[in-house]
Design a protein around this nucleic acid. Structure first.
Lengths: 182, 182
DNA sequence: TTGCAAACGGAACAAAGTTCCGTTTATTCT
DNA sequence: AGAATAAACGGAACTTTGTTCCGTTTGCAA
C-alpha cells in the first residue's frame, strides 16, 4: 500500500505510446485482429511488452480508439437519435474488422463490447428516451439492444458483395418509428 | 478420365457418416467452431480423415445442416416473407455459433455464407418480390442484403444479456414495410 | 556509483488449423 | 485363397498465433 505510487519509468511510457501508434497503423492495414507479433514488430518491442501494457486485445483496441469513442459520445450532445446512430455505424464501418470484433466472443474480445458500451450506452439511452417520450419511436427496444443490432448490421460492410450496412440501418430505424407492434 | 468411377470404399462411406453424426453432436455441445480434434475424437477417426472428406470447415457445416436448409427452402413454398424470415432466423439462432460463422471471414468459413445463400436466396427473392409487387414492402433492398442483415441480427442471440434477436428482426421487418424513403 | 526493482525481449509453451507419409484396408482379379 | 493395387487411414509433423515466463537490461533514487 504505497503512500506515493511510483510513476511509470520513461521507457515504459515511451513503449506504451509506441504500441498505440503501431496498433493504430496495423489496425488500418490488417484489421483489429492483426497478429500480436505484427503489432510488436511495428512498434519495435517484444510481444511480452504488449501484454504488459494491454493484458487483452480489447484493452489495446479500446485504447487506440478512445478519442474517437469520446468524440462520438460528445456528438450525442447535439444530435437526434437517427443521426447519432448513423455516426455510431460510420465509426464501426470505417474501422477494419471492428464491427465483427464487437460482436465476437473470441478470446481477447470478450470485453470489447462492454468497454465501448459503458461509454456510449448512456448517450444512446438519452437520445432514445427523448424519441420515446415524444411518441416518435417504439418503446420496447432497450438502448443496449439497439446498439448491438446496429453494430451487427455493420458486419460485412467491407465486403465486395455490395452489402450496404447504412441502408439496412436506415431500414431498422424506420422500423423503430413503427409504433404498431402487431 | 475414368469411364466408370470407382465407388467409395465401404470404410470411407462409413467414416463420412460417422463424421457427420459426430459433428452434429459436437456442434450442439461446443458450437460450429469446435476444434477439429474434438470432432475427430467424437467420430473415432484421425484428423486427416476430416480434411479428406471435408476440405474446409464450411463443407462440414453445410453437410451437417443440409437437411434443415432444404426444409427451410421448401417451407418457402407455403410462406409469406415475414414468416419465412423468422424461420430463417430461428434456424440460425438455434445452431450454436452459426450466425457468427455465417458473418465471419475467418479461415474455413469464407464460403459458408455463399453455400447457404445459393440455396436460400432464390426463395427469399421470390417472397420479397411478391411483397414488393403488392406494394407492401420497400423495393430498395435486395434479397441477399435482407438475408445478410437478418443473419447479422442473429449474432449474440445466445448471450446472457437479454439481446432478443427476434425482436430486432421484427423491427427490421417493420422497417421494410415503411415505404417512405425520406 | 550502487542497489533495487520495473520493464524488457523473445524463447518456451499451448492450442488448434492443416499437411503429409508410412501403414492399413478394401477391392478386384486370378 | 492369395496377390496386387491404390484408396483411405491415423496421427506426427508442421505452421500460425495467443500467451506466459525468466534471464537480462534499464531507469531511477539514494
Amino acid at each position: 500500500m504505497p503512500a506515493t505510487a511510483r510513476p511509470k519509468r520513461s521507457d515504459a511510457v515511451r513503449n506504451e505510446q509506441s504500441l498505440l501508434d503501431a496498433a493504430a497503423a496495423v489496425f488500418v492495414r490488417s484489421g483489429v485482429d492483426a497478429p500480436v507479433r505484427e503489432i510488436a514488430r511495428e512498434a519495435g518491442v517484444g510481444t511480452g511488452t504488449i501484454y504488459r501494457h494491454f493484458p487483452a486485445r480489447a484493452d489495446l483496441v479500446v485504447a487506440v480508439f478512445q478519442h474517437q469513442v469520446d468524440s462520438l459520445a460528445a456528438a450525442g450532445d447535439d444530435a437526434v437519435l437517427r443521426d447519432w446512430i448513423l455516426q455510431f455505424a460510420d465509426f464501426l464501418v470505417t474501422k477494419h474488422g471492428l464491427a465483427d470484433a464487437m460482436a465476437s466472443d473470441r478470446s481477447g474480445f470478450e470485453r470489447l463490447h462492454t468497454e465501448f458500451v459503458v461509454r456510449l450506452e448512456p448517450v444512446c439511452a438519452r437520445l432514445l428516451d427523448a424519441e420515446v417520450h415524444a411518441g416518435r419511436v417504439r418503446d420496447d427496444v432497450r438502448p443496449l439492444e439497439l446498439m448491438r443490432a446496429v453494430g451487427n448490421l455493420c458486419i460485412g460492410a467491407e465486403g465486395d458483395d455490395g452489402y450496404d450496412a447504412r441502408r439496412m440501418i436506415e431500414v431498422l430505424l424506420a422500423g423503430m418509428t413503427s409504433l404498431d407492434r402487431g
